[in-house]
Structure formats: C-alpha cells, structure tokens
C-alpha cells in the first residue's frame, strides 16, 4: 500500500507539522521505501509473542508522596517565547470551545 502525498499531509496534521505541498510530495516516496523495507516485521510477529515495551523487566518503581522544591516562577518562565503576569502567554486557541 503506497503512501500518497495526501497521506503525508494528513499525518503531518496529526503531528502538528507544517509541510509544504512540495515537501509532502518529496517525503511520500521516501517514506514509502522506508515503510516497505520495514514491512517484514509483521511477517515474524506471531500472535503468541508478547510485545516488549521496556528494555528491562522492572516493576513498581514509585516515590513517596513528599513535596520537593519547585522551580521559581522566573526559572519556569525563563525559556518562554512570551510571558505575562507570571504566566506563559500563548496565541489564541481556536478550534475548540471550553
């Protein structure tokens, strides 16, 4: 199944990544080659094989419910592109009501 420029554009939307039409057109065949080369994993991935999501079989790593020092608001905001009143200032949020 070939990946089209439209597919790339849809995926770019999900990834919040602005791509030009030219980029989508260029990426589609590149990604297609990569995807077809990795297609073989499905062939060996039998149903009875568990997924390995972690490199080590650790469980129950937890910390006690203890408050530790936070950053100061100045430190927290130090890298922000824009701030106002001790808060991060961001452009208007469209597309959802709240």
């Amino acid at each position: 199944m070939a990946l089209t420029a439209d597919d790339v554009a849809r995926l770019a939307g999900l990834a919040r990544l602005h791509l030009t039409e030219a980029e989508c057109a260029e990426l589609a065949p590149e990604l297609d080659i990569i995807l077809s080369s990795v297609d073989q994993v499905a062939a060996v991935a039998r149903d009875d094989i568990p997924m390995m999501t972690h490199a080590l079989p650790l469980t129950n790593v937890m910390r006690d419910d203890v408050v530790t020092p936070s950053l100061t608001p100045e430190q927290a905001l130090s890298g922000a592109p824009a701030t106002e009143d001790g808060r991060f200032r961001v452009p208007q949020i469209l597309g959802e009501d709240a």
Binding site: R63, V66, V67, S70, G86
Partner: peptide
Amino acid sequence: ASKMFCGCSTTFGAEPNSQT
C-alpha cells in the same frame, strides 16, 4: 501532597507557575 509524577506541591491557589 505532591503531584502524580513529580514532587511539586498540589496546594490550590498558589502564585502562578510557582509549583512547577
């Protein structure tokens, strides 16, 4: 007392971004 994944306090009504 602290957040789900870090040690910041969960107290309500603190100065903005002071518990991060």
